[in-house]
Design a protein around this nucleic acid. Structure first.
Lengths: 148, 148
DNA sequence: CAAAAACATATTAAACAAGTAGGAAATATA
DNA sequence: TATATTTCCTACTTGTTTAATATGTTTTTG
């Protein structure tokens, strides 16, 4: 499984978009600044997210990015898929003529398939709406803490 | 999460050992040949497994390797740990002075911690005994198929 | 027209993966 | 004791990936 900085930045940026682009587009630059991400790197990430249909863009001055779907419809799985490619552990053909076919099959079914299933279990069931909610609740909590 | 060829080879080799070194040590070379793995590469893998206390070695001519514990006591998690290092998705400190602390925390708790928990769930509960059993059952099944 | 922004492509430095090379040390066996 | 076998150890190589940078072009608003 891959979970690179790219995916991490992607999720951060999408939560940022969910919170900050409710009504209109938000510039990449502002997202980058708010979250301490290199703007040029974030461009590559947004390009991939746009190609995957997760966000859409408005060109030109005062342009920016918006979510292309409701937060409830965007899953962590989709985001990782768009940025890091297949997040599953990939099957590997066992070497020609070796007698480990059976062993490979065993590892595939007892370890790899199991892990992949659990990954789906988590990643397809966390939506951007969940993430946004969790974030806002934490913020609220921290605000309250501050005033005590 | 990392699941490199190194770990895959390690698991293959350990199942091979479980099956073939019941009574006495088995040479690395024979394990490598049976499973189509480069012997020199497998040496590095066995070295790591030995340092981790998962296997033990008998030096000299007619020497070889054996499991250091009963198969029920060796988990997939231990093997991956020994070969690929920590298999968890690792936490990453968010960039200094950025305001994404909250967002990072959200991703950590809702995605990363969840995935890591599920990984443990699978990997700490699959033992070499399970793998060996599954392998032998498959073999038996294939044998029967062959004679029909 | 000028500034702001998205869009696009190439390059780079560092790390990692998967192996190879070459030998030193230990030991069973002849 | 000599030899072959086998573990053990360190360094090197080659290709890929990651996380960026660099350098623009295009589009649109004011």
């Amino acid at each position: 499984m891959k979970f690179s900085r790219k995916s991490r930045y992607g999720l951060i940026a999408l939560i940022d978009l969910a919170v900050n682009s409710k009504t209109e587009q938000v510039s990449l630059c502002s997202v980058a600044k708010r979250n301490g991400i290199s703007a040029q790197y974030l461009e590559q990430i947004f390009a991939a997210l746009r190609r995957a249909g997760i966000i859409k863009s408005v060109k030109g001055s005062q342009g920016g990015y918006l979510l292309n779907h409701r937060p409830e419809e965007i899953t962590a799985a989709q985001v990782l898929e768009a940025l890091d490619g297949n997040y599953h552990i990939e099957e590997e053909v066992s070497p020609e003529g070796s007698s480990c076919q059976g062993i490979s099959t065993t590892i595939q079914t007892m370890v790899i398939d199991e892990v992949n299933h659990k990954l789906d279990d988590v990643l397809q069931n966390v939506t951007l709406a969940d993430l946004e909610k969790c974030y806002l609740e934490n913020e609220e909590y921290n605000q309250n803490m501050y005033y005590i």
